[in-house]
Computed example of a mutant assay.
Amino acid sequence: MRKIILSAAAFTMLFSCQNDENTPVAPSTEAIALRNCATQEVLEAQLKADPTLALRMNQIEAFTQKAMLTKRLVNGKIVIPVVVNVLYRTAEENISATQIQSQIDVLNKDFTAKNSDFSSIPAEFAGVAANIDITFELAGIVRKSTTKTSWGTRDAMKSSKKGGIDPTTPTKTLNIWACKIGGGILGYAQFPGGSLATDGVVIDSKYFGLSASNSYPYNLGRTATHEVGHWMNLRHIWGDSSCGNDLVSDTPVAKTANYGVPAYPYVSTCLPTHNEMTMNYMDYTDDRGMYMFTNGQKSRITALFVSGGARSGFGI
């Protein structure tokens, strides 16, 4: 089932109707039973705080659509330098260099289709399964001790003035903050177009990289794969609304977020009848249940890195 790709004007309408929860999630100590990514909620709050953000995102979307239409290609290999900013109160939150490197390794496998479960993709979707062909290199680790029990989703961890760590050269470096988020949130990311002062990805330290067994079922590093997907301009696969539009033509329409590890085929209630792509990294399934991007998602990502693209300063 193919979706209609929206014009920039229609894209603006998505911002105001995706979610009724426009306030960033408050911290809590609740156990995480189902995947919860706060990216959309954070975006809604940012749009309210900065009316010019929608304009910038519209411009990026128009550029993306044109780049895909004209099949503009990246001139060179995309390699993303990564700085990991670790904020810790406990020894467990002060994750090791080995665990950090394990996350870089997971990203490299997932974004180059070298993940071992790539072979599990159903034949129905194999034709659109993509090697994004982007790699990541650890450029540094910054550590800071804190007394905060949780950071929430208001980007305080990204500001030294608020007790966090300022981002390192965000026009050329992917900053990832590892900290205790709270509120049942595994992670969140900032879409292209937002402030450079807050650009990057936040991952709860418990779910960073190949983590402990008590992090199951989010112990395989796929939270970062999902959030980096957002940082690279990918929406949730259900478009953050019932049978919504994720702006990608080769991802089947999804009714809503899927959880756990749905058995294939998972028949959608969105008509006409079709199977949902529950194993896509931009769904909400368990780490072991997500293992593919699509060619359409690759096209959206690649458009960021061509000359004039929103992330053209990276890796070329």
Rank of each mutant, 00 (worst) to 15 (best):
Q59M: 07
R143V: 02
L186P: 00
I132D: 00
G140R: 06
G229T: 08
A254D: 13
N58S: 05
F305C: 13
A49Y: 03
Q40V: 15
M57A: 14
G182M: 01
T70Q: 05
G193S: 04
A178S: 15
K161S: 14
P170T: 13
N219K: 09
A197L: 09
G163W: 12
V86A: 03
G140C: 11
T285Q: 02
N219T: 05
R35L: 12
T23C: 12
K71T: 06
L73E: 15
V106W: 07
R300M: 04
M279V: 01
H274W: 06
V79W: 00
D117I: 12
Q190M: 10
S120E: 12
K144W: 02
N36V: 10
G163N: 11
N108D: 08
H230P: 02
P192H: 00
G313C: 04
G313L: 02
S213C: 06
A254H: 15
Y264P: 08
A38Y: 00
A130E: 08
F191Y: 07
R300V: 05
S16Y: 06
Q40F: 11
R56S: 09
I78A: 02
N36E: 11
R288N: 04
Q59D: 07
N94E: 08
F293L: 07
K71D: 02
A130L: 06
P167I: 12
G308T: 10
V84K: 03
Q46T: 06
N295L: 15
M13A: 10
A38M: 03
S16I: 11
N85P: 07
R300S: 05
S299C: 12
E21F: 12
L304V: 10
L73T: 14
L247I: 07
T23E: 07
T294H: 00
C270R: 08
P217Q: 08
A254F: 11
K66V: 11
A212V: 09
R288E: 02
G309W: 06
T146Y: 08
W238Q: 12
R143K: 14
I60L: 09
A113M: 14
P167Y: 01
L210A: 04
I132N: 00
G127V: 10
A197C: 00
K172G: 13
A49M: 06
Q190C: 14
N295Q: 14
I104C: 13
R56H: 07
G182K: 01
I316S: 08
C37P: 00
S307W: 04
Y259E: 03
I5N: 06
S307Y: 13
E93I: 01
D283E: 13
L196Q: 10
D20A: 09
S241K: 06
D240C: 05
G140P: 05
G296K: 10
A10L: 12
G313D: 02
M277F: 00
Q103V: 06
V228H: 07
S120C: 11
F191I: 05
S150F: 05
T153D: 07
P81D: 02
M157Q: 14
N175D: 09
G296C: 03
P51D: 00
F191H: 08
D133G: 13
S16M: 11
L174D: 03
L174M: 15
Q99G: 06
P81I: 03
Q297M: 04
S312V: 08
S150A: 15
A49N: 05
N131S: 14
A31P: 01
G221R: 08
